[in-house]
Amino acid sequence: MDSILIAMILALLIPIYEAWQDDDIWQKMLAFASIATKTSIMMLVISVLRDDWSIGVVAVITLSVGEAGLMLLAHLIKRLNEA
């Protein structure tokens, strides 16, 4: 189970690197979408691993909140480039 989590962290490092090296804001938003999903799935895995369901509830809430925040941010940035 530990090696699975290490592999997940490696997969998480790819979008973090991408967000750092690309200057276009939409590429950064894509990287953020990827990171938001990956972190909450990792939280779910850890909650199953430890059998701690308060972390699981937080993981599911983070999953939907992250996506909602992302959609809000996408619309705001779109308005920004129009004006």
Partner: peptide, 17 residues
């Protein structure tokens, strides 16, 4: 600000771990 959002996601992961 987008990176700040990424930092928030990573921080939530760290706190829950």
């Amino acid at each position: 600000l987008v990176i700040r959002a990424i930092l928030g996601a990573v921080a939530a992961l760290v706190y829950s771990v």
